[in-house]
Nucleic acid binder design. Sequence first.
DNA 1: ACTAAATCATGATCCACATCATAAAAAAAC
DNA 2: GTTTTTTTATGATGTGGATCATGATTTAGT
Lengths: 230, 230
Amino acid sequence: MPLPVPDLCVPFVYDDSCFDLLTNAEKEVVSAHSVMVHYKKGEMICKQGSFASHIMYLEEGLVKIYLEGNPKDLILSITPHKNMMGLQALFEGNNTFLYSISTYTQTAVRMIDIQVFKQLLRQNAIFAFRIINLLNESTSQSYGRFLSLTQKQLHGRLADILLCLSRKIFKSESFELPLSRSDLSDLTSMSTESVIRIMKDFKDDKIIDINNKSITLLDIPRLDTISAKG
Amino acid sequence: MPLPVPDLCVPFVYDDSCFDLLTNAEKEVVSAHSVMVHYKKGEMICKQGSFASHIMYLEEGLVKIYLEGNPKDLILSITPHKNMMGLQALFEGNNTFLYSISTYTQTAVRMIDIQVFKQLLRQNAIFAFRIINLLNESTSQSYGRFLSLTQKQLHGRLADILLCLSRKIFKSESFELPLSRSDLSDLTSMSTESVIRIMKDFKDDKIIDINNKSITLLDIPRLDTISAKG
DNA sequence: ACTAAATCATGATCCACATCATAAAAAAAC
DNA sequence: GTTTTTTTATGATGTGGATCATGATTTAGT
């Protein structure tokens, strides 16, 4: 049975904005019914279960999108700027956020009235089709993580996340990590102690280098092997 | 921190068909570009990773939608009739099935040409909006399972699945289970032996009754407690 | 009906990982 | 700059659950 090679990466990234598909008149409607909100590091942008009055577009910043669990959270994705957030709240009869979002850095979010957004979907099918694309891309990576979290053991899961952060978020094998070890544990669904221990294992084996918050992937092929073997 | 109460149930169920939102002309286009295919028990309807040439509508039957893992699969949902399948394959540049689907019973599937389906999405925004609803409902239950599988231990996970099967699929506290213990293990991400052992635990504790393939939930409040406590 | 193949069942063993405890280092608060 | 809090680190201990082995049932195949 062939092993699927899912996009294990955390975020979904679209280079061009979906708003390009709107007419000028529609863009003006968006402008008229949206506001920019600025957040500091560590603030919560939206709360799981609360009423979703807005669809959000992350103009600037880095955030985590997570499910609140008991007692640990599960981070669904680390999302960089230029991404839509909260689209999954778009369903009839239950306009509540499926997840919470909070910031790692200073962040600017465009908040678009959800009724206005729904109206755009109903009147502009090309735009709606693009939103379907976004949702499905997000689902696709979510399935990859599903397999990673339920079938791999600790070393494989952590390798997955380190590779993803390097390739998709920071786009460099060396980066300053704004996430704490506890965040990594919420991403990999393991205890914080295990994250620390395995990071040390990787460091001892010269697979990565750690200096406080700074991380360098030294041996990516080895990480790929660890990721593949589970 | 409040515990979210996600819809842990496996399938997404829409009573009214999304096709009602099409015009008569569009319905005819669907008819003209779709075929009914009949499957026997245990057959595969679509294969993860293969080219998605069709969107599928399950007219009759019961199927499992699953990710192929190594060595174990992960069942994403048990889906009864009157549901769309394969919608997640709808994204540009990568029209491949994200999952495999195979049947538990005799099954009839309407296969709709994916290009025709995409065209409908682009020209009928109301229809597209309904599809967004379907996708989001599916994502919503998928998140619930995500938490269940990563945070609960075996008894909680199995309780979740038994409750879901009873409430959402068979709509009775007593039902004939077409899934094997191994399927239950793919649903709960545990070993087959553990499924068998925990089923016995539940039976010994008079929480359920098992007779071969026939299952009766005797103490649903207790199952709810086990589900909640993890 | 008889054989072959899945499926179900149960016990024994082992280990991956969480949990607990305790401390050092870093960051934040004052 | 000193205290308080948060984050990182490491070792000791316990256990949930996988794995292995073996047999009993049930189902499917001929």
